[in-house]
Every structure is written in structure tokens, then in C-alpha cells.
Design a protein around this nucleic acid. Sequence first.
DNA 1: ATGAAAGCGCTAACAC
DNA 2: GTGTTAGCGCTTTCAT
Lengths: 336, 336
Amino acid sequence: MGKLTIKDIAREAGVSITTVSRVLNKKEEGMSQETREKVLRVMEELNYQPNKLARGLVTKRSNMLGLIVPNISNPFFPELCRGAEDEANKRQYSLIICNSDDQTQKEENYLRLLKEQQVDGILLSSKDRLSKTSKNQLQSGKIPYVLFDRGEEGNNYSGVFLDNEKGGYLAGKHLTDLGHTKIACMTGPQDIRNSQQRLLGFQQALMENSVNLLGSFILDGDFQMDTAYRVAKDFLQNNNVTAIFACNDLMACGIYRAAHEIGIQIPEQLSIIGFDDIPLVTALIPKLTTIRQGTYEMGRKAIELLINKIENNSSEEVVFEPTLIVRESTEQIRRD
Amino acid sequence: MGKLTIKDIAREAGVSITTVSRVLNKKEEGMSQETREKVLRVMEELNYQPNKLARGLVTKRSNMLGLIVPNISNPFFPELCRGAEDEANKRQYSLIICNSDDQTQKEENYLRLLKEQQVDGILLSSKDRLSKTSKNQLQSGKIPYVLFDRGEEGNNYSGVFLDNEKGGYLAGKHLTDLGHTKIACMTGPQDIRNSQQRLLGFQQALMENSVNLLGSFILDGDFQMDTAYRVAKDFLQNNNVTAIFACNDLMACGIYRAAHEIGIQIPEQLSIIGFDDIPLVTALIPKLTTIRQGTYEMGRKAIELLINKIENNSSEEVVFEPTLIVRESTEQIRRD
DNA sequence: ATGAAAGCGCTAACAC
DNA sequence: GTGTTAGCGCTTTCAT
């Protein structure tokens, strides 16, 4: 009772393997009800499961997609994975999820691996620019891919992005609307465009409201909680601001701790706004006001684009709009 | 310049495909250095990447493993995924990660899908018992599998578990060591054995220290933050305890909020201890004392067992020991 | 030391 | 309507 093949089914049903193949592929145009049902019945009885490898070998389609995320431990990415996975499954694809750990080396390895595994396409998400090798790997193999949350020069590629500038703008506007004027911003790593753009939009909003963002109030973060904590602690002890925009939620958590240790009340003395809206922020006390990316939806969309690319070779770039989620960590400035 | 095959390499190198296949598989015992190097060089130049589907078709080995997790959004599971992935990659396997969303239906679908995809083995993690269909699927196909964090009656299967009872015991002991006597415990879903065992160990520890755990102080949770919040709020308003053991960290977060809204100070008035040690708990203020599962390591180990099962058909059950991580949310009882 | 040929499980012309 | 047959890219006897 080893693995059943199409042959076994054919023999058992008294038909040819072609016929079996036909019902497998639902190409049953000219085929007697009777035959079809007989085959189906035999498959059912024997619990037959077709071998996708064999099918893939001839159709040149594995029905597998690869997803490379930079860091599955960052709560932002599981959401992306879910969105991607749900959409892939809906469209009859399986997803191989790979975690590049922010290492270019690993990313390149995975790219190679996925190609060897004959995936039909790749969804690539990463903080950094594409390395040369990665780009080569992607392009030389002519394998369809879409980029998540990071751009690329060049012509016909698909990608899903967030309007980070808009997000930064929303954060800035929210803070100025509340009357804040002494404001700081903690950025992500210098070389990440996402972060730069968030800052840009943020500055734009302040400017429009005639609020000045001092250069020394722009704090270098790295999207990590610990660094944010240290930087913020140092900063808050020596400076007087009423609001901080953290370029991601993880850093906002670090700032919470710093403020807490110094004895600064949130939001009474300090308003904080984050970015991402990762699930854990509702566990914070007070709940974090933040800029939401529709991560799950973005994941779905990205896979949709990827499949479009695979099936119709169409490229498209879609930009998502961030939204402001007001919770408890920001409030109207108090003029004491 | 479509996909290169073994034929192209053979032609280019002026050898037979058999020879190419040999160097591909490092079966180069009797083979001239020269030939080998020539082939290698050609592969390099042309950037040849073997087709694993084709290989899998003949060797009956896809070098792919499946991992089914109940809920990738629960921060507990990404760690598991990472461990599993790292180990799999080290051993030259790829991992297909699937998210069953705690739905038996989805779990069954994935099981089928993975088998069709010809994975060499499956690592199955889920809160619930195996459904009948799942069990059938697993066993009828004779596909190697290992269970993560959930038991099964029956003979030769592999599994990785945590000693949940020990974990509960550690939590109880920690609390009684600190002098607490008025203690509550919030459990997970009734039917989950993990949760029952944690409670059991916890009760054991209290008993040994002559502390009585009132039946009405055992709170029904469901491992979710929101429920925990509601239940805790109601409970804390009407009862007087100095410590709570939450059977997972997510619920501890909910309890934090409840305590905060009622105006109960942690840890001064209420000590809280969690379970899991998910990454986000260090973002809580105060940092959560908890029972750590070595999730990453457990993931690695599970894949190791799986591969052993695949390659040597050996079964093994390994139990991990939880450890107490003391942070800031528990302290010595104050006798006012 | 190397190659020819069969075949893995399936699909897709092409025939009848 | 249904079957025959030739591969897909690779591994693996079995020859030489």
C-alpha cells in the first residue's frame, strides 16, 4: 500500500491514465458522466493524492511561491505572512516562508534554494536594498517576483509599498493638531528609505503648522526596542519635549520604558505616537496611538500581484495609504 | 537562455549526463579529477541550478519539510518557526510553514497539501487534539511526522514537549517563596492539556507550602489577552489577592491592564507571573516575571527528531524543562 | 572512468 | 469519448 499513482487508479477504474489525468485536471469537456464518476469514486476509495512534483515537472509549474521576510520575530511580519498565505492558498498555491534574518547572505541562499525548488514566483521583503547577487539571481532566472515595501529602479517590476511619507505626515499633523510644539522624532536606521520618508512627511506636517523640529530633536534609532530605550532615556533626561514620534512601534515601547523610569507620565507629560500598529501595542499601558499599515492586506495584495505576474506577466505597483489610529498615548497639550 | 538542464551541462562539458549527475551528487569515487573539474567549471559559468522537482521524482525525496503552526500571530510561534527553519536549512531541507489558524479544517487541508507536495516529513503543532481525519492522513500515508507540544497515545511517534507541570510548579513555588498566600490562577481553555498541567503543577507547589488555592480563585481564561482583561477586571474588583499566575504571557498582559484600570500597583500590591516568555513581555512595565520555554531550541530539536525519523526511522520523545525568569512583576509580600 | 537506457508520476499532443 | 505515446529533468542500474 505504498503511494498510489495515476496508474493504479486507471487500472482500478478500468480506464487509461489519460482519462484519469483528465478528471484530475477537470478537463472533462468530452467525457461521459459515467466514466468521470467511476474514476472519482476510485480515487475517493483509495484516497489517492496526486504527486505534484511529477505534475510540476511536466507543466513547469510547481504551484509554490516563496516568501522571504527579513525577520519573522518582528511582530510586523507574521501579519504579512498570514495575508500572503491566505491569498496564496485561495489561489491554490503553497507558500514557502523563509526568514533571511536581515542577512544578505541568507537572502541570497534562499533565492537560490527557492529557484531550485522551482517556485513559480517570489515575494521579497527586506529592509535593505537588493544586493547585486540577489538582483542577478532574480533577473537571470527570469523568475517572477514582487517587492514588498522597498523600491527598485528599473522598469517592469511589481511591488507593494506603503506611503511612508503620508504616514509621517499623519503623525506630525496629529501632534500639531493637539497643540504640541516641542516635539522629537526617533528614526530608524539611517540608510533605510522607509524611515527617511517617515521623517520627511513628519517634518512636512510640522512645517505646515509652523512648528520647528530641531536637528537635535531627531534621534537616531534602529527600529529596535533596546536602542530606543537607551537613546530616549538619555534624551528625555536632558531635554524638554511634550511629544515624540517613534518611526516604529517597537521603538515606542522602548520610549515608554525610558519615560517610566524617569518618572514622566504618558500621555499627561509626554505624548507618544508610533508606526506600524503591530498587535502588541494594545498591551501597552496606555495603549499606543500609532500609524497603521494594513499589513495583512498588503500581504494579500502582494501575492495577488505576484500571481498576476506569473499568470499574465502583468506588472503593477500599488501603494497603500496608512491611517492614524488614535488610542491613549497622545493627548491635547496642557498649558500649565 | 531558458532554464538550463543537466543535458546542457553535459553537452557543453562534452560528457554524458550520467557524469554530470555524478558530480551533482558528489558520487565521484571513480572519476578523473579532470572531468570533474570541467563539469564543475561549466556549471559555474552557466550558473546552472538543478531542478529539485525532477530529482525528487526519482529519489522520492523532496527535501522539503512541512511545519503546521496553529497561529503565527501568537508571538510564541515565530520563535518556533525560526528554530525549525534554522535546523532544517542546516540539514539541507526547506520548510513550508503553514498556519492552521486553530481550525481543524485548515489543518486537514494543509496535511493533504503537504503530502501532495511530497514533503518528506511534517512537524505538527496545534493546541487541540489531533482530529480523526488528521490522524488518518498522517498515518495512512506513512509520512514521518513529529508532534510539537501535544501528546498522543500510541506507540512509535516522535514528539517534543515541555514539562508543563514543572513549569506550573516553578510558578507556584516562586510565589509561595515570596510569601504570597492569597493567590489566583488564570487558566487557558479547559480542554487544553498544557493548561491543565500548568495548573496541576501550580497547585502542587502551593500545597507543598500549605497554601490553599480556592476554587473560586481559579479563573477561566482562553489564552487571549482580551478575555483575560475582562475576567481579571471583574475578579480583582471583588476579591483580594496578592498574586496571580497567568497560564500564558498574553493573558498576563490583559491582567496588567485590568490591574492598572482598577488602580492596583504591580508588583507592590499584586505580583504577576506569566508563562512562555514571549519576546514582548520585556516591553511591559514592569517587566514580566515568567516561566520560559526554550521555544527556539524546541523548534530545532523537533526538526532534528523529524529528520532522524525520516533518515533512520527512529522515534524519540523529548521533554524540555521550563525555567523561571524573575523580572520585575513579582516581589516579596508586604505585610502592612 | 564513463555512458546508454530505463523509468519516476504526470500532462499533452495526436490518434482512433 | 477514450487511449497511445512521447517526453519533463533527473537518478540509477548495467554495460563497456
